[in-house]
Design a protein around this nucleic acid. Structure first.
Lengths: 133, 133
DNA sequence: CTGTATCCCCGATGATACTG
DNA sequence: CAGTATCATCGGGGATACAG
């Protein structure tokens, strides 16, 4: 069974079970990955553990507010762990948990798809916009 | 090289190239997948071609407005094709394009991850919320 | 049946200032 | 350094009515 058949079959199972959106694993996961910063933070932490300021330098266009909030959400979901060192000034290190690491394979598959197909998508957009104009 | 190393290495390449967000394939793709309805529509169309009303029945909690808009976005990106049959009343069928089908494998990987890890995530949340309270 | 056009609201995000 | 608190903004998305 290919993944294509798998996704289609999944749809039919969903239809039969009439899942509540709040109980749908896919919405749960994609709602988080889909927000503006989660995937970037996960990718950064995949490369290496980061302290708060280092993460901020790695992703310059995020605000401290959203960096904190996104990290808390990831921590809450068990994807990231937070390690406080009571130095002065304080330092806090963020790491992917094993659960977080386990997401890298499927995320990597999507990233690879995105990179390999991006030019095709951009071309399709240009054509569509041309015809619309 | 595992996908994990791949994602980490990707991060370093991104850092060196200092990509504009608008040119980042991953943001492009995840912004679309991350919206409220795209993934559900793609999964539905993976199972089979759908007419507008059938798609609406398959995903009852979407409004006609957002269904139309999301389908247009998918069409613009070349992931979905639109086929009009000039019957009365009119009927329109939506299908995944080959490009759209090519996304099902990586999307399926993510869906499989989400389903297999969802209980772990829910448990982590419960623990986190308990400690916070 | 397959959409468009409007209006409206709320939540996600940013900016800025402050704190241990 | 690593956040928190507060206010302002903007656009995604719902509801409704209309149209070809």
């Amino acid at each position: 069974m290919t993944s294509t058949e798998g996704v289609g079959a999944l749809f039919d199972r969903w239809q039969q079970r009439r899942l509540e959106p709040s109980q749908c694993p896919v919405r749960d996961v994609l709602d988080r990955l889909g927000d503006k910063w989660t995937s970037l933070i996960v990718v950064a932490l995949a490369a290496r553990d980061h302290r708060f300021a280092a993460l901020h330098r790695a992703i310059p266009d995020i605000s401290k507010r959203m960096l904190t909030q996104t990290l808390r959400d990831l921590e809450r979901d068990g994807l990231v762990s937070r390690h406080v060192f009571p130095t002065t000034p304080p330092s806090v290190e963020y790491r992917l948990t094993p659960l977080g690491h386990s997401m890298l394979d499927p995320l990597g598959a999507l990233v690879a798809w995105a990179e390999s197909r991006h030019s095709e998508i951009r071309t399709a957009r240009a054509v569509f916009d041309q015809r619309a104009a």
